[in-house]
Design a protein around this nucleic acid. Structure first.
Lengths: 172, 172
DNA sequence: TAACAGTGATTCGAGTTCGAAGCAACTGTT
DNA sequence: AACAGTTGCTTCGAACTCGAATCACTGTTA
């Protein structure tokens, strides 16, 4: 099996590397700003922002975790941290005793508001500074499509296969 | 200061969220594959791949860390791990006793080769599946420009300002 | 050549992350 | 009603990450 696969084109690699690199650099820059402005990590901000976006500022743990692409256990940890800081509140749902609703507090909203301007400034400086309106349109369109595709494409990993197989009686 | 700033446009937000979400999802998917195929984490793969890309398969620690957007101390840790596994070798440069050259071993190259096909398959399935050639071109072009801009734009964070100020005698 | 800042890397502690295992509540069955 | 299976969340241990402090070498300046 030497060089049988055609492999990705140079442009594909450039797109892939660009994606990884840009998101890494952006994340680092944003993380800096968040830490200074309100001593928040990037995930913490994502959690608060996701809650802020929710219709009533409240979400179930699982949905919140899915929203930010984050592990359940990691979310439990951060939810505790943020609850201790008074930025969000947790309450078990009356309908389903298992599920925990996470809600943004007034202070959480306040912090979010305090952090936002700087956050947006970084985006402008770093991400959008050299892009035309058309570029931004294209980015949003393309990445939106990719995201939808990814969200609707279940992982075909062995772990997933194993999990699926276990419920079907397949062992090989 | 209620709603004085115009704020980012909806398209800008979509582009930003798309970027973050796609890179997160992609990273998770890839991480799965890497763990199964060769028990590698994503950073470990990035390190090996970056080395594999270097002309002689060798780089200084700092350059390697910059290449993958990673902390120095984190790199030291992973370099130790990967060295113990025999995937790379470290040797102090004869010219500069401080600097450490990291080199991909034959086994490192072998592992890289073993992991690559699956890696590429994921990219095809998840990232490129629904994109036209034009989409990929646009992505590569836009993200390439953004990356260059980010690489050439020093962070304007307070930390950087503090660091800079310290060398200039500014304290306010 | 002795002080000095600058640079490359490591060590250390504290905080964070994940997956596996566990617990509790819900949803079908039968 | 009792059972197995599922789902939602938390706990736990181990691995990972980062920044600050540190060590060691290099270059510069007096």
């Amino acid at each position: 099996m030497g060089s049988s696969q055609p492999g990705p084109s140079a442009v594909q690699l450039a797109a892939y590397f660009g994606l990884i690199e840009v998101s890494s650099l952006l994340r680092h820059a944003v993380e800096q700003q968040l830490k200074e402005a309100a001593d928040l990590s990037y995930v913490q901000f994502q959690l608060l922002a996701t809650l802020g976006d929710a219709p009533d500022g409240s979400l179930r743990m699982t949905d919140l975790a899915d929203g930010v692409v984050y592990s359940r256990s990691g979310l439990t940890y951060q939810a505790q941290v943020l609850e201790k800081r008074g930025l969000l509140a947790r309450s078990t749902s009356p309908e389903d005793e298992r599920s925990v609703a996470v809600t943004l507090t007034a202070e959480g909203r306040e912090v979010l508001g305090r952090v936002f301007p700087g956050h947006i400034a970084i985006l402008q400086d770093l991400l959008f500074a050299r892009l035309s309106a058309g570029d931004v349109d294209a980015l949003a369109d393309i990445l939106g499509r990719v995201r939808d595709h990814m969200r609707h494409t279940p992982p075909r990993s062995a772990a997933a296969r194993r999990r699926r197989a276990a419920t079907e009686g397949d062992a090989a």
